[in-house]
Every structure is written in C-alpha cells, then in structure tokens.
Simulated scan of single mutants.
Amino acid sequence: MTIMHIELKDRTAIVTGSTAGIGRAIAEGLARAGASVVINGRSQERVEATLRQMRTLLPNAILKGIVADVSTAQGCAALIASVPEADILINNAGTAHPNGFFEQTDEEWLDLFQTNVLSAVRLSRHYLMKMKANGWGRVIFISSESALNIPKEMIDYGVSKSALLGVSRGLAELVAGSGVTVNAVLPGPTRSESLSAWMAESAQEHGISPAQAEHDFLETMRPTSLLQRFSTTEEVANMVVYVASQQASATTGAALRVDGGVVRTIA
C-alpha cells in the first residue's frame, strides 16, 4: 500500500489573512508540509504574535511575516514588493458581518468587495503569470458554501464568494496546460476566531452555552448540515494543503467543498 506523503519543501507559499482562523491553520499546515510560508495580516502586532506561535510549534519552519492590508491596491503592491515570486498563493483574506440589504450603502458593498474579491484578483494577476512561466504553481481561493447558499442576512458576503468561484474557474481556463492549477475551496460553518466570537456573543445574549449556540445556529441557519457540528479550521486546512500539493496535479478549475454536507447537491 502506498501512503500519501505531502512534501512542499522548496515551495514558497503566501497565505493572505493568516494571523487567525482558517488562514492561520492553512499557514501552519503548509509549514508542516515543508513549505516556506509568508504570514500576512494588517497588524504588526498580530503578524509578530503569529510568527512567535508558529516558530514555537515548528522551530525548523521557514517563515516570513508581511504586514499589508491586501484590501487596498497599495497593500497588495507592498506584499508583492516584499515577495516578488511564490509557488503557492492562498487567497484567504476576507470579511463578513450580518447586515440589512435595504440599509446597506454602495460604499459598504464596495469595501467588502475590495477585501473579499479584489485582493485575490490583484495578487493572482501578479503571481499567476510568474507561475505559468515557471511551469508549476497553485492558486487557491477560499470561497464559502455561502457562495452557493446565499444567506439573506449577508447577501453581500455570499455574492462576493460567488464571484471568487467565477474568477477561480476563469483563471484555471486561462492557464490550461501550463502546469499551474487554480481551484476554490468552500468551507462551511467553521469554528474560526470570528464565528466562535459570534457564537459567544449569541450565547451570552440568550443565556446559553457556546455549544448550545452552535447547535442552535446549525438547526436554524444551516439545517442541511450532515456533519451536524462546525468544522475545525484544521479540517479546512487539510483540504487546502492537499490541493496545494503535487498529488493534486489533476485537480484544477474545481470548487471543492469542506462544508459538512450543507449544500444539498451531489455535483
């Protein structure tokens, strides 16, 4: 029996928005597989804290921290200037918050798209060309099951994640046959820093435990979940690390769900 061993030594990986949550777990997973990993965040304090934590966990890992707000063109340019080439780009930076569609302004829609969509577009535009020239590369967009099940309380978020699916598939078509793959990964409800904080607030508001708040969320907001619990950030990261590997060389142009079966489709 052949046991799959993912080896990313000599590969450089950039993970945007990687000081917490899914991005942090992806960065650690890639580092454990041997990749040199670029940690990115908007705050010097959080980037440095993440580097300290990961160096304690993985003393032999090759890590670099870049403070840059990739929701802006200037922030993307700063990241590119610090790391001109990469073998693996994980477009993870994103934000979400409940809102009312009828109360939202154009500026709020545009701000969210700058973070969730245009950050990925700008960075892919730079790094993908270099990957294509080198004959190998991986670009992975962190989308969401909300791209397929648009939540009425966060329509802007769902639409932005749908947009990532379109960009991902289009770029896969653009680099066909080059040795570069482009894919999207769609997490479902995940026990990340942001969603856990939301559950803690809900628990406090209703006088229940965070575990009960999580259960109630799934029952009312994601009743189609087959997992019937939140995924862990590590479970999402495991999919991303695989897709970033040589073993996933025949997977491209795909939307890969780690949603706990929330989306009711077999395709």
Rank of each mutant, 00 (worst) to 15 (best):
D106R: 09
V167F: 15
T95K: 08
L174I: 05
E48L: 12
N92G: 05
K132P: 05
S178T: 14
V167Y: 06
I150F: 02
A78G: 07
K161E: 05
D111P: 02
P59N: 10
D111L: 03
L58F: 07
Y127S: 01
M54Q: 00
T95Y: 08
R52W: 06
Q53C: 06
V175C: 14
P84C: 12
I142H: 06
R122L: 02
G179M: 04
T72W: 02
A86N: 07
R52A: 15
L79W: 00
Q74I: 03
E108R: 07
V139S: 01
N183E: 11
G179L: 06
F101W: 10
D156N: 13
A133T: 08
Q53D: 13
A172Q: 02
N91P: 00
F101A: 15
M154G: 02
R122E: 01
G177V: 11
E85F: 09
R122N: 00
P84K: 07
A172V: 04
V159R: 00
S71H: 01
E173P: 02
M154C: 01
Q114V: 08
R122Y: 03
I90Y: 07
E85Q: 11
W136K: 02
L110K: 09
D87N: 14
A73K: 09
C76M: 06
G100E: 14
G170S: 14
G177M: 12
E153L: 03
M129A: 14
A120Q: 00
L89H: 02
F102C: 10
E85V: 15
N92F: 01
R122Q: 01
V167E: 00
F102W: 10
S144Q: 05
L110E: 13
A172H: 04
E107G: 04
I140M: 01
R52T: 15
Y127V: 01
D111E: 06
G179T: 05
C76T: 10
A176F: 12
I62T: 15
A93G: 10
W109N: 09
I90K: 05
S124D: 03
A176C: 11
L171Y: 10
L165M: 14
I90G: 01
N116D: 05
Q104C: 13
L89E: 10
L174T: 10
R55F: 06
L148G: 06
N92I: 03
L165T: 09
A78D: 13
S82Y: 00
S178Y: 04
F141E: 00
Q114N: 14
M129C: 11
G158E: 04
F102G: 11
N149S: 12
I142V: 15
W109R: 06
Q104D: 14
L171M: 15
M54Y: 01
E103K: 09
T72E: 06
R55L: 13
V117E: 03
I142R: 04
V117D: 02
Q104P: 06
V175Y: 04
Q74H: 05
L128Q: 12
A78K: 10
A77E: 13
Q104M: 15
C76R: 00
A73P: 04
Q74T: 11
